[in-house]
Simulated scan of single mutants.
Amino acid sequence: MFGSKVKDLTPAEVKAALDAGQILLIDVREPAEFAAERIHGALNFPLSTFDPAALPLADDKRIVMQCGSGKRSATAIDRCRAAGHKLDSHLGGGIMAWKAAGLPTVSLDAASGQISDRG
């Protein structure tokens, strides 16, 4: 299994790379999870329907996977590798680690439908 070779990036590393425009962050959580709260700039490619061939071209950016805790993003990397993609990195600990580090998220208030940035 490839999962043991997945590189865990820290929330600070992912934030710096996002801010610098160096990575394309792919969130593999399900649409309802993504809609409720996400990392600004992440694209949603749910693991339940994940197709490595559908990933956007990242040009000169590095693709980094992300999920809730790190398990599903590692699975997505395994699927990408099996399809011939050379991906190796994900946000270690997922959005839970991101939030624990005090980094901002975009969330949806289900009652009002308002989108807000939280930091």
Rank of each mutant, 00 (worst) to 15 (best):
M1Q: 14
M1P: 10
F2L: 15
V6I: 03
K7G: 05
D8R: 02
T10H: 12
T10P: 11
T10E: 12
T10S: 14
P11D: 00
A12K: 05
E13V: 00
V14Y: 04
V14M: 01
A16P: 06
A17E: 12
A17P: 05
L18C: 04
L18A: 04
L18E: 06
L18N: 02
D19C: 01
A20F: 10
G21Y: 05
Q22L: 10
Q22A: 15
L24H: 02
L24A: 04
L24D: 01
L25A: 04
I26V: 12
I26W: 01
V28Y: 04
V28H: 08
V28N: 01
E30N: 12
P31V: 07
A32Q: 13
F34R: 04
F34W: 09
F34V: 06
A35R: 05
A36Y: 06
E37L: 10
I39S: 07
H40K: 15
H40S: 15
H40Q: 15
H40G: 15
G41K: 12
G41T: 07
G41M: 05
G41I: 10
G41N: 10
A42R: 13
L43A: 10
L43I: 11
L43V: 09
N44D: 06
F45Q: 13
P46L: 11
P46T: 07
S48E: 14
S48T: 15
T49N: 09
D51N: 15
P52G: 06
L55C: 12
P56F: 03
P56L: 09
P56A: 09
A58F: 07
D59L: 08
R62I: 11
R62Y: 03
R62G: 06
I63Q: 02
V64D: 01
V64G: 03
V64W: 02
M65S: 01
M65L: 10
M65V: 02
C67S: 02
G68W: 05
G68V: 05
G68Q: 11
G68L: 12
S69G: 11
S69Q: 04
S69N: 01
S69C: 02
S69R: 04
G70S: 05
G70V: 00
G70D: 00
K71S: 14
K71Y: 12
R72P: 04
A74Y: 05
A74Q: 10
A76V: 07
I77G: 00
I77Q: 04
R79H: 14
R79C: 10
R79D: 13
C80Y: 06
R81T: 08
A82Q: 15
A83N: 12
A83S: 13
K86F: 08
L87H: 13
H90Y: 02
L91M: 06
G92R: 03
G92L: 00
G92N: 02
G93L: 00
G93W: 02
G94M: 07
M96R: 13
M96I: 10
A97E: 08
W98P: 00
A100N: 08
G102M: 13
L103P: 08
L103T: 08
P104S: 14
S107M: 06
S107K: 10
S107Q: 14
L108G: 00
A110N: 00
A110D: 04
A111T: 09
S112T: 15
Q114K: 13
Q114M: 06
Q114D: 14
I115E: 12
I115F: 07
I115Q: 06
S116K: 13
D117K: 12
D117E: 15
